[in-house]
């Protein structure tokens, strides 16, 4: 069964410098990481997502195919894409690597604000704590 109610989580900004298919991939990874998309669950169909988000279906296909080649989802014949088992508990090194782009962005922002590495970590620590409590 397709979980069409999940589509609104894929909040995209077409007028961003990041290609739409990459934003979609990021959105799915985030859903998987947070557990909102569980192992074995089916992704909404290409057409459903394209219609809902008012974008080109080819963009959605491209995102789904890239996620497949990364092992986040796997193709199920006649049903679509489902969240792969390895995606939720994959290689820790791989998961750390996935965090790098966001970490670089944070570092750049901290630099712009003139914060030292220690000060930056002092901000990050409590945020991580907050997250764990939720």
């Amino acid at each position: 069964m397709h979980h069409d109610d999940r589509i609104p989580h894929f909040a995209l900004s077409p007028s961003s410098g990041v290609p739409l298919y990459r934003q979609l991939m990021e959105a799915v990874r985030a859903e998987v990481a947070s557990g909102r998309l569980a192992e074995g669950e089916l992704l909404p169909s290409v057409r459903t997502v394209a219609r809902e988000l008012e974008i080109n279906p080819m963009t959605v296909s491209k995102a789904w195919s890239h996620l497949e080649s990364e092992g986040v989802v796997e193709r199920v014949r006649g049903q679509g894409m489902r969240v792969a088992s390895v995606a939720t508990d994959g290689d820790p090194a791989e998961r750390r690597r996935a965090l790098l782009p966001a970490a670089r962005e944070l570092a750049a922002r901290a630099y712009q604000l003139g914060l030292s590495p220690e000060e930056t970590l002092a901000v990050l620590g409590p945020v991580l704590e907050e997250m764990r409590r939720d």
Partner: peptide, 14 residues
């Protein structure tokens, strides 16, 4: 316009 263009693209993609 957005909704309408999406319908057109949905159709042509198929």
């Amino acid at each position: 316009r957005r909704e309408f263009l999406a319908t057109v693209i949905d159709h042509v993609a198929e």
